[in-house]
Design a protein around this nucleic acid. Structure first.
Length: 967
DNA sequence: ACCGCCGGGTGCC
DNA sequence: ACCGCCGGGTGCC
C-alpha cells in the first residue's frame, strides 16, 4: 500500500501522482484495486450521467490552487487524511490543491468513490467573493446499473441528485450550448457520422505553411519535397514557440479555453508530435535528417568528420555500424564523454581540429545563457508570492475587462490585435530555452524488434560516409549500461521490450536526459496499463516524437497514450482527456469532436501515398496491378470440398438455429478453416479431421480435442482476437467451452470473479486449472510432410504455372508467395525445388536474427540469389522492406483486406523500381469467393468501427459466417 | 467570514 | 446567572 504524506510541500507535486495512484490509495484490498483497474476502461466509455448537485469547496485559504469561473476541477479521495478518512480533495488541472469538499458531502461521496460506483467530476460555475469556500457543481457518472444505488445512497445522506437532463457536462457547456443553439447544431452526431469523423481524424493533415527545409550536409540522401516539408515541420515543432492547442494568453495569464484553467506560468509546450505519414513515405529518413539537422538552437548536430583520404580505406568502420556494435572496451564505456566514446574509432587518431565537441565557443555561450535562464526560472518557481491571499477566485477576464476593471488589452475586441501587435513579452521570448536541456545530445529511438535492423541499415545508407555518427544499439545481454556512455552517443536505438525489461531495474535509459525520444511504430504503445507504456512515459526528454503509419487502430482511446507521451497538457492526465475530449467526442458531441480534430491537427503531420503537394503526387510509385485469378478445383478436389461443405453447413446451420454460434465459435472457425484449407491443398487437412462434436469420453480425449481446436484456430492465420483485450491473442489458451483467449486476460477474468468464473463469450463456467495450452512440441511434427507422398493441388499448379511463365519472360523478377497457412508454404517448397527456383522463407516462427538474414539475402541483387520468398501473411509485421520483389502471389484470401494491403505494400513502397503485379488466387465457387464478397462489404463499412462494442463485432461475425456458408 | 460556533465576560436602563 | 446578551477569537479535511 502506498502511504502518502500530505505535507506542505505538496502543492507542486505532479498531477500524474494524484491521478495515477488514485486506485492505490482508495482501494482497501488488492481485489478491489484489480476490479477498479479492470473497470476503468468500460467506465470511461459506457458511463451515463447520474445527476448533479451543488456542493461546497472549503479550506481555500490553505492552498495555492486557484480556479477560474467555469473551470473544471478534479476530485480525489484522500483516505489517509489524518482528520477525516472520508476526505475528498479538490484540485485544478495542474494538480494544485484548491481545497476540500465539505465534510458531510465528502462522507457521502467517499463511499461511492471508493467502491467505484460513480465517477464524480467538479466544475466551478459561479464564483464567490468569499476567500474561504466556494460552490462547486458535482456531476456523477457511472454504469447504468449503479445509477439507482448511487442516487439512493446520496439521498439517504441528505444529498439529492438533480437528475434533470440539463446536465452540466463541461466547463464551457453554457457557452457551447448557446453557440450550438444559435447555429442549430444541438443534434448530436449519428453513429455513422461519428464513425466517419473518427475514421477521417487523420486525413488531410498536411501542414503546408512551414515550407521546406534542406537537410544538413551530413545527410547523404537528397530529401524528396514532401520529406523536406516534414523536416521543416518537425524542426518548427521542436524550435518554434507556439502555445499548445487551446491555450491563449489573456492579460498576464495563460488560459486554457477548454478547461478554463489559467496559470501565470506559460504552459509547457510540446516539442515534438506525431509524424503519421503512410508507410513508405520515408518517416525513417526524415527522422534521421531531423537528428542531423536540428540540434540545439536549430543548428546541425555537431558530428565528427573524417578527412576523406585518411578515412576512406576504413570508411566502413567509421560508419554507424562500427559504433553500433557493443563497445567492449571499458575505456569507451566509462570514459569521459564524446571524445572517449570515439576512442575506438579511427577518427580519434586524427588531429582534433575537425572534432566539434561540446565546448566550442558558441555552445558555451548557449550553455551559460541557459544557466541564466534556468536559474531565473528557478527563483521564479520557488519564490512564494508574499501575498498569501493567493486563493482568490479569479473572475472571468473578459468580464473583468468589461467592467472596466483591468487591462484594456483584455477587452474582447482588441484582444486579437493586441496580442499580435504587442510584442512584449512575446510567447516566443518567454519560452527561452526552458524546456531544452542543452547538455542533452543523444536521441533515443525505440522500435519494435522487427524494424530494428531497418534503422541500422537506413542510418548506414543515409548518413554521409565521412561523418562519424555515434550510434549505439542498446540490445542484447552485453549491452553497455553506462549512462555516461549512452548519453554521449548521437543515437541510441533500442526496442520496446528491452526498455520495459530495464524499467524499474535501475534502467540507464531512464536516468538519462535525452535530447529527443522517438517512438517508432508508436501506435503499439496503446494500452496504458502495459509495462511498456509506463516505461515509455517515464523517459526524460526535451523533445518527443511518435512515428506511426496508423496512429489510431481501434478507437479514439488509443490517442490518449500518444498525447500522454507527448505531455500535451492537460490531456496527459487521463481525467481531463476523458472529460474534455474522449467522452464528449464518443457521445457525439460536435464541439467535442471539433476539439479532438483541432488537437490532432496541431500535433500531427500525415500524408498518404495518394496525397498531393502543389498538385503533384508526393511520391511517384510504380504502378500496382491487382488481379484475381480464379482457380478451378479438380473433380476429386471438388468432391472432397463439397462433402466437407455440406457437413459444415449442417453443423453451423444447427448452431444458428439454436442460437449457439458463439458458444461453438471455435468449432465454427474450425469448419471454415477446413474449407479454406481444402481450397489450398488437401494435405493441409491431415491433422484436423478427427474432431467432431459430442460428449467427451475421457479427460485426455477432451484435452486432445481442445488442443486440436486451438491449433485450428491459430493455424488458420485468421486474425483471431482475444475477446478480453480485443487484440490478437498472445499466449493463447483454450477454455473447455472452446473459446480462445490470451492467458493473462482470461486469468485476470477468473481471478476477479469471486465465486464462479464464467467464459466472457458463452457464460459457461471456467476454471483456471482447465485452461489448455498449445503444447510446445506440436510445432515440430508439422515438418513430417515427406516428398514421396507429395501431391499437387489446383492452386499449387496455378502458382507454378505463373512462376514458370514469368521465369521464361524475365528471370530477374522476384516474387513474394504469401499464404496464411505456414504448412501450405511448406508444401510449396517441394515444387519450387523441383523446378529449380531458389527461394527463402519468412514466417513467424523464425528468430529475428534469421529474419534479418533472410531479408538481406532476398534483397541482395546477386545473380544466384533467391527469386521467390515464401512469406507467411502475418510474419514480420509492418515496416518490412521487400522491394526486391515486384510480383506478389496471394495464395488465399484473408479475413481482413488491410492485412493483404499491408503485405502488398512491403514491396509496393518507396524504393520499388518496377511495376508491381499482384495475383490473388481464389477458388471458384468456394468459401474463398464468399470471403472476398465480405471483404468488399467491409471496405465500405471499414472494419473495426469506432464505438462498436465487443458483442457488436461478434454479431457481425455471426452474420459473416452465415454469408460464408450461404445460410 | 458582512457568517456560525465556541467560550469567557458580564448582567436594569 | 442552572439563563440571555455582547464581543473577541477563530475557522477545511
Amino acid at each position: 500500500m502506498f502511504f502518502r504524506r500530505w505535507n506542505f510541500g505538496w502543492d507542486r507535486f505532479s498531477e500524474v501522482d494524484i491521478f495515477t495512484d488514485r486506485h492505490d490509495t482508495s482501494a482497501e484490498t488488492l481485489s478491489q484495486a484489480i476490479r477498479a483497474a479492470a473497470s476503468e476502461e468500460p467506465d470511461a466509455d459506457g458511463s451515463v450521467p447520474f445527476g448533479h448537485l451543488q456542493g461546497t469547496v472549503v479550506g481555500l485559504r490553505y492552498y495555492t490552487g486557484v480556479v477560474n469561473q467555469g473551470e473544471m476541477v478534479g476530485l480525489v479521495r484522500q483516505p489517509q487524511n489524518p482528520y477525516d478518512r472520508n476526505a475528498v480533495m479538490v484540485a485544478n488541472i495542474y494538480g494544485n490543491q484548491v481545497g476540500h469538499i465539505k465534510r458531510e458531502l465528502a462522507a457521502a461521496m467517499a463511499h461511492i468513490m471508493d467502491n467505484n460506483l460513480a465517477k464524480v467530476e467538479g466544475v466551478v460555475y459561479s464564483g464567490t467573493k468569499n476567500k474561504f469556500n466556494m460552490p462547486v457543481t458535482l456531476s456523477f457518472w457511472g454504469r447504468e446499473e449503479n445509477k439507482n444505488a448511487v442516487v439512493e445512497n446520496m439521498a439517504r445522506r441528505g444529498f439529492k441528485l438533480n437528475t434533470s437532463t440539463s446536465r452540466p457536462t463541461g466547463a464551457n457547456e453554457m457557452s457551447y450550448n448557446s453557440i450550438q443553439r444559435k447555429k442549430g447544431l444541438t443534434i448530436p452526431l449519428t453513429a455513422a457520422e461519428l464513425k466517419n469523423a473518427f475514421d477521417n481524424l487523420f486525413e488531410g493533415l498536411v501542414e503546408s505553411d512551414d515550407g521546406e527545409k534542406e537537410a544538413a550536409d551530413s545527410v547523404a540522401t537528397p530529401l524528396l519535397p514532401h520529406q523536406r516539408q516534414a523536416l521543416s515541420w518537425m524542426c518548427a515543432r521542436e524550435n518554434k514557440s507556439t502555445l499548445p492547442p487551446f491555450w491563449e494568453k489573456r492579460g498576464e495569464l495563460y488560459y486554457n479555453t477548454l478547461t478554463c484553467f489559467s496559470a501565470k506560468e506559460i504552459p509547457e509546450r510540446v516539442r515534438g508530435g506525431i509524424l503519421a505519414d503512410d508507410m513508405g513515405l520515408g518517416k525513417t529518413l526524415t527522422t534521421i535528417a531531423l537528428i542531423l539537422t536540428n540540434f540545439h538552437n536549430g543548428k546541425p548536430l555537431p558530428v565528427e568528420r573524417c578527412e576523406e583520404e585518411r578515412a576512406s580505406p576504413v570508411k566502413a568502420n567509421t560508419k554507424p555500424k562500427m559504433a553500433s556494435k557493443p563497445a567492449g572496451s571499458s575505456s569507451a564505456g566509462d570514459g569521459a564523454g564524446v571524445s572517449d566514446a570515439a576512442a575506438g574509432s579511427v577518427c580519434s587518431d586524427l588531429p582534433q581540429t575537425e572534432v566539434i565537441c561540446v565546448d566550442t565557443p558558441d555552445i558555451v555561450e548557449i550553455t551559460s545563457q541557459s544557466e541564466k535562464s534556468a536559474s531565473k526560472g528557478k527563483t521564479k518557481a520557488t519564490k512564494r508570492k508574499p501575498s498569501k491571499a493567493a486563493p482568490v477566485l479569479l473572475d472571468d477576464l473578459d468580464f473583468a475587462a468589461a467592467l472596466g476593471g483591468s487591462a484594456s488589452d483584455a477587452a474582447p475586441k482588441k484582444k486579437k490585435t493586441a496580442n499580435k501587435a504587442n510584442p512584449t513579452p512575446s510567447v516566443e521570448s518567454l519560452y527561452l530555452q526552458r524546456a531544452d536541456d542543452l547538455s542533452a545530445r543523444a536521441t533515443l529511438i525505440i522500435c519494435p524488434l522487427s524494424v530494428l535492423s531497418n534503422w541500422l541499415e537506413q542510418l548506414e545508407q543515409h548518413v554521409r560516409a565521412d561523418v562519424k555518427l555515434n550510434v549505439y544499439l542498446y540490445y542484447g545481454s552485453e549491452r553497455n549500461r553506462s549512462q555516461k556512455f549512452l548519453s554521449s552517443q548521437d543515437v541510441v536505438i533500442t526496442t520496446y521490450n528491452v526498455l520495459s525489461a530495464d524499467f524499474g531495474n535501475k534502467s540507464p535509459l531512464h536516468g538519462i536526459s535525452w535530447l529527443r525520444v522517438v517512438l517508432d511504430e508508436g501506435h503499439i504503445i496503446r494500452n496504458p496499463n502495459a509495462l511498456m507504456s509506463k516505461a515509455v512515459l517515464d523517459l526524460k526528454a526535451s523533445r518527443r516524437w511518435i512515428l506511426s503509419g496508423t496512429p489510431i487502430q481501434n478507437s479514439v482511446k488509443d490517442l490518449w497514450m500518444l498525447l500522454a507521451f507527448l505531455r500535451l497538457k492537460p490531456f496527459d492526465v487521463r481525467e481531463w482527456w476523458n472529460r474534455v475530449i474522449q467522452r464528449p467526442a464518443t457521445q457525439g458531441d460536435r464541439a467535442g469532436l471539433q476539439n479532438l480534430q483541432t488537437l490532432v491537427k496541431c500535433i500531427t503531420l500525415r500524408r498518404t501515398k495518394s496525397s498531393e503537394a502543389n498538385g503533384r503526387p508526393l511520391v511517384s510509385l510504380p504502378e500496382k496491378n491487382v488481379s484475381v485469378e480464379q482457380v478451378e478445383l479438380s473433380q476429386q478436389e471438388r468432391e472432397e470440398y463439397e462433402l466437407a461443405r455440406s457437413e459444415g453447413r449442417n453443423t453451423i446451420g444447427r448452431y444458428v438455429a439454436e442460437g449457439t454460434v458463439l458458444r461453438n465459435y471455435a468449432d465454427v472457425l474450425a469448419i471454415l478453416m477446413r474449407l479454406r484449407q481444402h481450397c489450398c491443398h488437401p494435405d493441409l487437412l491431415a491433422k484436423t479431421s478427427s474432431s467432431d462434436l459430442g460428449a467427451a469420453a475421457t479427460p485426455a480425449e477432451l484435452r486432445e480435442r481442445l488442443i486440436e481446436k486451438l491449433r485450428s484456430v491459430l493455424a488458420s492465420g485468421s486474425d483471431e482476437e482475444c475477446s478480453v483485450c480485443l487484440e490478437s491473442v498472445n499466449l493463447p489458451v483454450i477454455t473447455h467451452c472452446a473459446h480462445v483467449y490470451c492467458r493473462p486476460c482470461i486469468a485476470q477474468v477468473i481471478s476477479t470473479e469471486k465465486e464462479i468464473a464464467r467464459c466472457p463469450l458463452c457464460r459457461s463456467e471456467i476454471k483456471a486449472s482447465e485452461l489448455v495450452e498449445f503444447p510446445q512440441e506440436e510445432m515440430e511434427e508439422e515438418k513430417s510432410t515427406n516428398a514421396e507422398r507429395w501431391r499437387a493441388s489446383s492452386k499449387v499448379q496455378a502458382l507454378m504455372g505463373n512462376l514458370l511463365r514469368q521465369q521464361s519472360e524475365d528471370s530477374s523478377i522476384k516474387s513474394l508467395v504469401v499464404s496464411q497457412f505456414t504448412r501450405f508454404l511448406t508444401i510449396l517448397e517441394t515444387p519450387l525445388r523441383e523446378h529449380g527456383f531458389t527461394f527463402v522463407r519468412l514466417d513467424g516462427t523464425m528468430t529475428q536474427k534469421r529474419r534479418t538474414q533472410v531479408i538481406q539475402e532476398f534483397q541482395s541483387s546477386s545473380a544466384d540469389g533467391p527469386v521467390v520468398m515464401l512469406l507467411s501473411l502475418k510474419a514480420g509485421g509492418v515496416g518490412l522492406n521487400l522491394t526486391a520483389a515486384s510480383r506478389v502471389f496471394l495464395m488465399d484470401p484473408a479475413w481482413n483486406p488491410a492485412t493483404e494491403e499491408q503485405c502488398i505494400d512491403r514491396c509496393h513502397r518507396l524504393g520499388q523500381k518496377r511495376n508491381v503485379v499482384v495475383t490473388k488466387f481464389i477458388v471458384k465457387d468456394s468459401v474463398e469467393e464468399n470471403m472476398v464478397k465480405i471483404q468488399r462489404q467491409k471496405q465500405d463499412l471499414v472494419e473495426k468501427a469506432f464505438g462498436s462494442t465487443n458483442s457488436d463485432r461478434k454479431t457481425s461475425r455471426i452474420d459473416d459466417i452465415k454469408a460464408l456458408m450461404e445460410l
